[in-house]
């Protein structure tokens, strides 16, 4: 296979060209495998269960909107979306604030034990959240936090902190000393420097860790499964699972509920794709 275009020395930048047909064929095949099941679920929501049973792989004939309407009006969908939003936003906010404060100290203050403290946090990368779930449940029970938003938020914040600090610290370290000196001459304290200069400058990194924490929290299942037995506090992943086992004969309804539950994550990802990829890029570089 030939290189599509040799760069012309004068421009130095390759023009975006049309790829070869083979490139498109492969890319299309990959994309189809990735999203065909998702499209099937969304379209399946527009059929009746009877249609689906008669021909599982068919198209809607006729289109019915009843499933989506039913899920949106009669189920706990909105309640669960609200709970998911509260928990994810709470987690994200706390992770970003606490992570930034700790990473700022680890990046810009020099004191004895600094590297020790950093290693102490990075150790958390080796503590899988899944393994700690049973003792975590027992502890939250003893603290009377079961069936509260905190039961999900606090552990999620704790387990997100190590990665957050690992990503934020290099960003904060990279801010030139001169900026800090200039701020000091203008009368800013170190905290003023954090608030007025370091925070705005590290906004891309903050968005990245925020997006990562939000997505992880929005999709989380095991922790809410154990600590949120109260149906009114259920999040969307719990809702999807409950709906699918409660109405297992209503295949079309389950498909509709599942596609509606996918929608927020897809929208969010489309908007934040650059940050997610950019953030992982930073993490890969170290």
């Amino acid at each position: 296979m030939a290189v599509n275009s040799v760069p012309s020395p004068s421009t130095g930048r390759r023009p975006v060209s049309w790829g070869t047909p083979l490139t498109y064929a492969l890319a299309l095949a990959v994309a189809a495998v990735s999203i065909a099941p998702v499209i099937y679920v969304v379209i399946g929501g527009f059929r009746t269960t009877r249609q689906i049973v008669a021909n599982p792989a068919g198209l809607p004939d006729p289109f019915v909107f009843d499933n989506y309407v039913r899920v949106l009006t009669q189920s706990n969908f909105w309640r669960q979306a609200f709970n998911s939003a509260v928990i994810s936003l709470g987690t994200t906010l706390a992770v970003v604030v606490l992570g930034l404060a700790a990473a700022f100290v680890l990046a810009r203050y020099s004191f004895r034990g600094r590297e020790g403290l950093y290693t102490f946090f990075t150790l958390g990368l080796l503590f899988p959240a899944g393994a700690a779930i049973l003792p975590l449940y027992l502890m939250l029970r003893d603290l009377s936090l079961i069936n509260s938003y905190y039961a999900v938020i606090l552990p999620q914040v704790a387990f997100s902190l190590p990665l957050t600090i690992v990503i934020l610290r290099p960003f904060l370290s990279a801010i030139p000393r001169e900026l800090e000196d200039a701020a000091a001459i203008d009368g800013a304290s170190r905290l003023g420097f954090l608030w007025r200069i370091a925070m705005p400058l590290s906004r891309p990194a903050l968005v990245t860790v925020g997006v990562l924490a939000f997505v992880a929290s929005w999709n989380s299942f095991l922790l809410p499964l154990l600590v949120l037995s109260d149906v009114n506090l259920h999040t969307l992943p719990l809702g999807v699972q409950n709906f699918s086992s409660q109405y297992s004969t209503d295949t079309a309804g389950v498909l509709a509920f599942t596609s509606l539950a996918m929608l927020p994550a897809l929208l969010f990802f489309t908007l934040a794709e650059k940050q997610i990829v950019g953030g992982l890029q930073g993490a890969v570089k170290g």
């Binding site: 390759r14 790829g19 498109y24 890319a27 299942f221 992943p237 994550a265």
Partner: peptide
Amino acid sequence: RFRGRAVFRLLVFVPYVLAEVTVGIM
């Protein structure tokens, strides 16, 4: 580098973004 690359990238990431639970039920 080819035209439409960004769209293909977005589509390929879709399964990763969805919750494991949702994908599992699906």
